[in-house]
Design a protein around this nucleic acid. Structure first.
Lengths: 167, 167
DNA sequence: TAAAACCACTTGCATAATACAATTGGTTTG
DNA sequence: CAAACCAATTGTATTATGCAAGTGGTTTTA
């Protein structure tokens, strides 16, 4: 299974992200700011196996969703970056998160980011995409964009702490 | 693989629709108005195998995306209907279609529906969802909703005809 | 400076999912 | 009453996934 089965937009998109891991890996790069293989492997909520992670990173690179560059500060590390194409998944990520939050048995600390993103709407998504272009594509501007990522991460940490003490 | 790996909304959603066929089958029920096993099998653009189709229909039923009812007009037929939960995928379908159309090698006659849905925006999506509630959930109202489905199908047939004669 | 830890993977092997073709038992049509 | 239809199921082959261990190199630590 790696042939194009039809030229339908939905089908072709599912040929790129329609598997158990691709979107979850992109989520970790995007919202977790994981840029190295080891970070993606160790901090994986779902416990991905290293061979599967390697295979997916290769496939995502081939399909133009991420790029692979050497880390100049650490010769054996590799930096994975989102492409513009992947950054444009942000609204879809937000809507999938909202759908999942509404219909499935999500846990509070993992749902908070989806909630904020839903409440923030297209304006927040656009801000986040600008930040990702700054972080992943090296788009430099006069002022770095205000960090939506920090905002989402702070909210997550807060809820996670509250949950741990039985809130 | 059928265990819950994490309570993250994106992960849980991918556990439901994150495979090569589920979203494509929902697309055919939704936009192609295919309600029977045979229709889904025979008219499948991507050529799904009958055992895979049967397995997916079972799984989609178990996860509350579709329902299975007997066809009173034809005892051996089964009618598959979308649930409210699946109907609420319409905006996601529209955005996935738009993303695929922008970034992947779609064919014109299969992309026209995605284009119209993108141009129509949230207002058209809501209209289409109302129509799906009418068709699949039996929501009766004073006037049946104006058919977005007919509009999309007509546009598809027009482009398909134009493409066939080498437009 | 030598040992330990880290890094991005790869390998070997078991299990599970998918693909294809043929078939099933019942129903409806001609 | 035979042929076609219907929603699957069965058998078998191929491919993907999952897990544990290992690789060759680099960086850190004692």
């Amino acid at each position: 299974m790696r042939q194009e089965k039809s030229g339908c937009p939905i089908n072709l998109t599912m040929e790129v992200i329609g598997d158990r891991w691709s979107l979850v890996i992109l989520r970790d790069i995007m919202f977790g700011n994981r840029r190295h293989f080891g970070e993606l492997l160790e901090n994986s909520l779902e416990g991905i196996a290293s061979n599967i992670l390697a295979a997916r990173l290769k496939r995502l690179t081939d399909s133009g969703m991420i790029t692979r560059t050497a880390d100049s500060a650490h010769k054996q590390k590799v930096i994975y970056s989102l492409t513009e194409q992947a950054i444009e998944l942000v609204p879809i990520m937000a809507m999938i998160g909202a759908w999942g939050r509404k219909h499935l048995a999500v846990t509070p600390e993992l749902a908070i980011r989806a909630q904020l993103l839903e409440e923030g709407g297209p304006q927040m998504w656009e801000g986040f995409m600008e930040e990702l272009r700054y972080l992943h594509l090296g788009h430099r501007q006069n002022d770095p964009p205000p960090s939506v990522l920090d905002q989402l991460t702070a909210a997550y940490l807060e809820v996670a702490a509250r949950e741990r003490k039985g809130g």
